[in-house]
Design a protein around this nucleic acid. Structure first.
Length: 577
RNA sequence: CGGGAUGUAGCGCAGUUUGGUUAGCGCGCCACGUUCGGGACGUGGAGGCCGGAGGUUCAAAUCCUCUCAUCCCGACCA
């Protein structure tokens, strides 16, 4: 491709709307343009990157015998009603009616549709397992799209679904996907980790996220400093401290006028937060109330609480709502003598504490030296705490550290949630009728492109790994209007094209600086420079974008050497088998 | 949806507080000339319903009302 013909409007300054580096650089490098909030057009260079990523995904999916299909963007309400998600999904699902007043949605995901698709044909265990996938546009009407491609409303996603006859078979499909994902992200040149993840609305039990490590990421990841434990903070757990060996003391009621918050209690009674138990009142479902006990210095992890309560419809009791529960005294609620109208949930960590402070369910009063089993009973223990850096690793003696990450893929063992809801069954070897056991596996394709930039850039622009770069080589002819340079540039260009190298020939009549700057900005992995100096020396200069290394090749070998370099760079991204 | 902010040329911005000729600047764009290995220089040009609608006024980018859009922080999420 000749740069003079390429539609790649580069920008010297980044548009004010862009905040994160990937968004800025995608705009500046002429790869995307915004159409509406969270909705973008991919320009030729940007779309080539997307296609590169898609191709890697296809190759790895096909490698584990997943089969590609293409489902529609729009989906009828019907199939969503059967699984209950038509009401569950909320306003994030963009809904509309056709001219006959039939209800549809833009597909935010395709579990329902794909299950409905196969249930008519997959009738026997002999036909299982089956894994199918598609690369399709998804639409989620995000409350707040942001960060360019990182959180768009319309985005490109690869989604795969496995249909299995047994847990063992599901595990195999899941493991295959795990392997494929590992290869995919390795091939894309990303620094990533597979971590334990929350399952959220999709359902299911076992799930892992593939997360690209980057400071601009939206998830917080906790990982162990000595073993390979790594988890999203939504699900991260921690090893409980050793049980306290203090002798049990008798509880004592203490007047604490105006002292409500943990900070105040801690200062007033001169005890650390770790010796206080706070009682948080949550309202959930229609009108049910839960009291959550947690160590004073901790925060509740609302993801964990959601799966415990079985709903995301809950919130801390707030403002006027307190008036509906006169027996609960705001700021002084505690487990001792708590009304049994309230569901009491205790974080597991409370079980190792002794002689702690709690609210007394009476204004301006706390109780000290309280103990579980002595002064109140707990029937429901759970892990509802937000784990943070410095906590102990749940798997070993190590300590957890935290970092930020961008979730680019997630794999789930769904189980039978969708197959049961839709009545999607098969006949087992011994004649029983059973719902498929399913897995679901997603990759955010456009987000993967953005996260690659988050991880690979410098002050001059993007540094694409060669596997996803829009072109592998750019040839910068400094003075294309001079015959010798034009001829030399053309011949290298043609030579490389003949060898199958993806190459851009910068034949524009522009200043040298502009051409270098554009090439750096767009992030072509290799720059071949043809100028007066080249003509004089008979050597062609090649710059490696990532490292800035410059090499010189004699003119007659240039094409071969450059092509070799390209191959070499690809090799370095190959996963080991 | 709550909080904050912004809409002026393709991009980045000034002008709005205190209403007053033809609405400016930088980059980019076009023409010519000079330059020619890291976003060159000179000269000349083109390009604006000042987000939209309504109002106040002799007069509105500037004041008022409504509206639309975009961005940031939060609740939601690949």
């Amino acid at each position: 491709m000749r740069f003079s013909l390429l539609y790649a409007p580069t920008l010297k300054e980044s548009p004010a709307e862009a905040e994160v580096v990937s968004h800025k650089l995608l705009l500046r490098a002429g790869m995307i343009r915004k159409v509406a909030a969270g909705v973008y057009t991919f320009l030729p260079l940007g779309y080539r990157v997307i296609k590169k990523i898609e191709r890697i995904i296809r190759e790895e999916m096909n490698r584990v015998d997943a089969q590609e299909i293409l489902m529609p963007v729009i989906q009828p309400a019907d199939v969503w009603r059967k699984t209950g998600r038509w009401t569950q999904y909320g306003p994030e699902m963009m809904r509309f009616k056709d001219r006959h007043e039939r209800e549809f949605a833009l597909g935010p995901t395709h579990e329902e549709l794909v299950t409905a698709l196969v249930m008519d044909e997959l009738k026997s265990y002999r036909q299982l397992p089956l894994t199918i996938y598609q690369i399709q546009v998804k639409f989620r009407d995000e409350i707040r799209p942001r960060f360019g491609l990182m959180r768009g409303r319309e985005f490109i996603m690869k989604d795969a679904y496995s249909f299995n006859a047994s847990i063992e078979q599901l595990q195999k499909s899941y493991d295959d996907m795990y392997g494929a994902y590992t290869r995919i992200f390795k091939r894309c040149g990303l620094d990533f980790r597979a971590i334990q993840a929350a399952t959220g609305l999709i359902g299911g039990k076992v799930s892992q996220e593939f997360t690209v490590l980057a400071e601009s990421g939206e998830s917080t990841i906790l990982y162990c400093d000595s073993c390979n434990y790594a988890a999203n903070d939504e699900v991260a757990s921690t090893r409980l401290p050793e049980p306290s060996t203090e002798a049990i003391k008798s509880p004592e009621v203490i007047s604490t006028p105006g002292v409500k918050s943990i900070t105040e209690v801690s200062a007033f009674l001169n005890v650390p937060g770790t010796k206080i138990v706070k009682t948080l009142i949550y309202k959930y479902g229609a009108r049910e109330i839960a009291a959550v006990l947690i160590r004073g210095d901790r925060d509740v992890n609302e993801e964990k609480l959601a799966s415990l309560l079985g709903t995301t419809d809950f919130h801390l009791l707030a403002g006027m709502e307190w008036e509906d529960y006169p027996e609960l005294i705001q700021g002084y609620v505690g487990p001792v003598g708590l009304t049994d109208q309230v569901r009491l949930i205790a974080d597991s960590e409370i079980s190792v504490m002794r002689n702690f402070v709690v609210g007394a369910n009476k204004s301006d009063t706390h109780i000290i030296n309280v103990n579980v089993g002595e002064d109140f009973q707990v029937e429901e223990w759970a892990d509802v705490k937000l784990v943070k850096a410095g906590d102990k690793c749940p798997d070993c003696e190590g300590t957890l550290l935290s970092t930020r990450g961008i979730e680019v893929g997630q794999i789930f063992q769904l189980g039978t949630k969708y197959s049961e809801a839709l009545g999607a069954t098969f006949i087992t070897e011994d004649g029983q009728v059973k719902p498929y056991i399913m897995g679901s596996y997603g990759i955010g394709v456009s987000r993967t492109a953005a996260s690659s930039i988050e991880q690979n850039h410098d002050e001059n622009g993007i540094i694409w790994p060669i596997s996803v770069a829009p072109y592998e080589v750019s040839i910068i002819v400094l003075n294309y209007d001079r015959k010798e340079q034009k001829e030399m540039g053309d011949s290298v260009y043609e030579g490389l094209e003949k060898k199958g190298v993806e190459v851009i020939l910068d034949d524009r009549i522009e200043s040298a600086g502009k051409k270098f700057a554009d090439s750096d900005l767009i992030g072509f992995p290799l720059q071949v420079i043809v100028g007066a100096r080249t003509i004089k020396s008979g050597n062609i200069e090649v710059k490696v974008r990532a490292t800035g290394d410059r090499r010189e090749f004699p003119l007659d070998q240039a094409v071969d050497r450059i092509a070799d370099l390209v191959i070499q760079m690809h090799e370095s991204l190959k996963p080991e088998d």
